[in-house]
């Protein structure tokens, strides 16, 4: 392309991050992370289909500290993407597009993402099955 050296707009380096732009890029980032995370889901299911030995190996890997750390990150990515995705669906329906509403729903998504992550981990550790 002939336009390679033209400055990019917006100038990301000098642009002050705002809740709106940060949450927008976080939606895309968590989406990519979740796509990578499907590898773990498929590995887990395939290991279960492979028999008791391969499944025990997969459970040990997922249960290790690094496995849990990754899973915690993916849990937040999942709940953030879910909450912000619902926010996007409301926007698509024409609701909540005024700037104060956009900020209010933005903070709701941040709080909702963290709360659901912590709640699901507490349930996983102390729930003892449904």
């Amino acid at each position: 392309m002939a336009t390679t050296n033209r400055p990019l707009s917006p100038h990301l380096q000098v642009y002050r991050p705002q809740l709106t732009s940060v949450l927008s890029i976080l939606h895309r980032g968590t989406g990519i992370a979740l796509a990578v995370g499907t590898l773990l889901l498929v590995y887990w299911l395939a290991a279960a289909a492979g028999g008791p030995e391969s499944f025990a190996q997969a459970q040990a890997l997922i249960g290790s500290w690094i496995g849990r750390l990754l899973l915690f990150g993916w849990t937040f990515a999942l709940f953030y993407h879910l909450c912000n995705g619902i926010r996007h669906l409301f926007w698509d329906g024409g609701f909540g597009l005024e700037l104060p509403d956009v900020y209010r729903s933005g903070w709701m998504v941040v709080i909702g993402g963290f709360a659901l992550t912590v709640l699901s981990w507490l349930f996983g550790y102390f729930g003892g099955g449904l």
């Binding site: 499944f55 459970q59 249960g63 349930f123 996983g124 550790y125 729930g127």
Partner: peptide
């Protein structure tokens, strides 16, 4: 998420 969190640490028999 609700299903998986209530089957954490399941062995192969429980999983199947």
């Amino acid at each position: 998420v609700a299903s998986v969190t209530s089957h954490i640490g399941a062995d192969h028999a429980a999983m199947t």
